[in-house]
Simulated assay, not measured.
Amino acid sequence: MGIAIRSILPVLAAAGLLAGCATPPPRSNQAAYQAYQQQNDPLKPMNKVFYRFNNTLDTYVLKPVALGYIDVTTPGVRRHVSDFMSNMQAPAQLLYFMASGKPRDAGTTLVRFLVNSTVGIGGIFDPAATLGYRHVYTDLGLTLAGYGVPAGPYLYLPLFGPSGVRDATNIPADFVMTPTFPPPPSTGLSIFNYSSAGLNVVNTRAQLHGTISNVKATALDPYATFRSLYRQHRAAQLKTINRRDVVTPPAWYPASVRARMKHQEYGQQ
């Protein structure tokens, strides 16, 4: 993971240098100019090079590995892997929710991490959800968006895929904020970090297999479709965060009490 982080920094620097190289259509061609502005993809030539690189890597490496992984695992196993990876992200998300001024989401994240790390055996299981503390998500890019930082030009990053100038900050932040980053390096820890990172990539690719296959099979321009899907997904995540910082009544509260707490909460919004 450290190697990947170091390799992506020159790419981001190059993106900044190349931003002025894309030539927009003349303003006299109003329809083309508006489409160019809406795409917000001034680095499209470079992005498409990286898209073709990732697509080749996916076709000959990631997809076959993911299909083999699907064959030897069950949906339940893949869900437990996702739960474990989600639990690893919880400390960082706790800080992001606090920085965003979302105390209830921060509290939910803290309870989930404590419960799932212990009763849930390191996050392999999700007993916190059974107790009423369901998963809430954020990251550094969404936190910055909450402070009004614009998404910036679209980026398609080698290895990492769709992103943007703002959301690219998630890459180094997620690496530094991982619970296994602060301890002194060791062979065992390095093996765990690389193994978990690799497993996360394969598990995520397996979960997205249907969507990716459908886009590649049906879209006239898969690159543009993936760009649109990414932006829609990020917009939906931000919208969810903005409206969701609500009280989490534990499951053991009486139903009438939980209903009243929810009603009072939404009545204040």
Rank of each mutant, 00 (worst) to 15 (best):
Q38A: 14
T59I: 03
V65S: 11
V119C: 13
P179S: 11
Y96E: 07
V11I: 00
G188W: 02
I241S: 06
Y36P: 06
I191G: 03
F113C: 07
Q93T: 04
F175S: 14
A92V: 06
T218D: 05
N200G: 13
R258A: 07
N116D: 05
D105N: 09
M1F: 11
Y147H: 08
T187E: 00
L142H: 12
I191C: 03
R166M: 03
R79K: 05
L94I: 02
T248C: 15
R134E: 01
Q237G: 07
L114N: 10
D167I: 08
T138I: 03
G267D: 08
D126Y: 03
K262H: 15
I212V: 15
Q37A: 14
K44V: 12
Y60D: 01
L208M: 13
A15I: 02
A235G: 09
G132I: 00
V165N: 11
I171T: 02
D139M: 10
V136W: 11
L57R: 12
F113Q: 10
V81L: 02
H263A: 09
S256M: 03
A19P: 10
G198H: 01
F226G: 05
W252A: 00
V65N: 11
L43D: 06
A14F: 12
F226K: 01
V136D: 11
Q37E: 14
G148N: 08
V72T: 11
G132H: 01
M261S: 09
N40F: 09
V202Y: 03
S163V: 01
